[in-house]
Amino acid sequence: MQSEGVVAIVGGYASAICLATTQAAARYDLPYVVDVGVTDAIVNRGLKNTFRFGPGFGTVTQQAMDNLTKINEAAGKPAKTVMLVHEDGLFGAGLAKLLQAELPKRGFEVLDTLPHPTPARDMTNIALQIKAKNPDILIPSSYYGEFVLLARTMQQQKIKPKAIYAVLNGAASNFRFVKEFPEAAQFVMDCNHWHDPRKPAAEALRKSLEAQGKFWTYNIPMNYSAVLLLADALERAASTDRAKVTEALASSTFADHLMPYGPTKFVNGQNTGAAPVNTQVQGSDIKVIFPAEFSNAKVVFPVPA
């Protein structure tokens, strides 16, 4: 790529890919805007070329825990115990480790942590263990296929915790899941990337995609915004010189994106305004329930039996 006059890269998604490609790009001082990769090692390595537009694990977990505590308190603290289910790769295992440390600090007891491989042939065992321990809240961090399998098995075994509270889950804020398995998806909460529903450009993009019969996912506005961010930097750099573009990115205050982040500000490569939101499946829609400034629905918690 380097020899073909590439000025900058936008990309990411799978964290492992991000780790490798950002480092490769750093060798050639190639500016790299990561849109979705959540592993904090992406920006913690001091690579000067790497800018992450979205929030990382640390921020998302903090926010997720803060919001969970608030939701629980507002409902009169019905939930005390939690169980974690996670896929055993970089994403799930990393998240589970953070949550295991954070939850007890906020007064939740972690009853158990259950890893599973991807692909998993069967989630019945996990469902059985959830049934045996009967946690108030279940926090699943899995990819789409396994989470759907788990949600379906739980429905089958009639296991109903007070809430399924996902963090960065592959399915919980995915319209395909909601459409294909409305019952299993009902009232599932997620703390994840989501566009700012107040921004007309974001809603317009969503409408145009849905008109084409495609499912709206959070990485669409993320990627779109990251490209806009880079375009803005290129314009201000008024040059295709890599160092100048890197500098323009570092000093970016770009605010015209689709995410609820406010003006962009990079500190050590991390966009400090980046934050996740909380969503919940209600009926056939995915509603924003937190933060209050732009939520479009009230949280349903505990889930009615």
Binding site: Q23, R27, T39, R45, G89, F91, G94
Partner: peptide, 30 residues
């Protein structure tokens, strides 16, 4: 593969990043 993926000593699922330090002595070249 499963063991390496599950063992913290081998970096677990996060894998291993050899620090970027371009020097001949480090088997890394510009």
């Amino acid at each position: 593969r499963i063991l390496v993926n599950a063992t913290p000593a081998t970096g677990g699922a996060a894998g291993l990043l050899i620090p970027l330090d371009v020097r001949f002595a480090n088997f890394q070249f510009a």
